[in-house]
Amino acid sequence: MTISVENLETRQVDPTKPLLEVDRLVMHYKIKAGEVSAVEDVTFTVHQGEAVGLVGESGCGKTSVALSLMRLLPNNAEYVSGQIRLDGEDLLQLTDEEMRTRRWKDIAMVFQGAMNSWNPVYRVGDQIREVLDTHFRGQMTYEQQREHMERLFAAVGLPGEMLDRYPHEFSGGMRQRAVIAMALACSPQLIIADEPTTALDVIVQDQILKELKRIQTELGMSIIYISHDIAVIAEVTDSLGVMYAGKLVEYGPTTEVFARPKHPYAYLLLKSTPSITGPRRQLAPLEGEPPDLLAPPTGCRFHPRCPFATERCAIEEPPLADIGGGHRVACWHWEQVPDLEEALLR
């Protein structure tokens, strides 16, 4: 497997410069029964060259955040308030057509369903070429396009001939690699990878994540990893956000959050996930289900499931407060969390 990013354009990175700023984003889905508060007051920043992870149980609004960023939400979604700034420009203010030209060129996306991201009736190469046709219309001949695509394939370790194959002729891992190759096609500043490896077997998962990480750093792109599995993305991210019921409940440098989660939910989530890469941990139960976002709990949305919940938690919503070192947590009782282990062990 020859993996080479040499021939792809690399970007100069200034890690202090914010690339994407999500600012107090509120997004709801309108359904017959009411409004689903899927993204509630989410704020975080992705710097140039930074890898940010978003974790949370399924149904917590991770995908909603990702789609919000791309403005790919379904018709019933509504941006209630907030801003999404890319290089300082609010994406929510762009016209549909402007936004369309930004997609993939500035922000590419790798979806969860690698299998189904490909249209079964077209050759993989043609589906990548489509991107080039759209974003570099008239600027490349078919030959140049071909060369470029072969480079992309080489970057993810796929032979160039595979471009002429149909998706069903690819294995799951190859398909996901091809998706990554396609994501790189326009050298975007940001890639959003929503559960990029979930459906793959564990070894392949790991390989792909590592490659993605390497490509990302080498090319100087930023990336947002989304996963329900905190252990998987802890290894490849610089910062980590934990989402619960549409809210960002904890955000900070990955090392901090992973080693010392301060939000009870983050803590329990970490504990409940088996890991083959991290240190062996005692499994702890995370009981119950995330709430129905049509009528989320008052106060702290986690309080019905939280072992520390007090009366206050049910009434007053904790702010996402900085506890130092860029580590932010939204909990009235974050200081007690380290005690939790003992409590659980008993």
Binding site: L72, R100, W104, K105, M109, F111, W118, N119, E130, T134
Partner: peptide
Amino acid sequence: GEDYILTARAKGLPDRVIRDRHAARN
């Protein structure tokens, strides 16, 4: 409702292309 339609939209393809090349074709 297929995923590849969402992918096509994420790719920034014009609506017409998504509709004709991807959705209608299938």
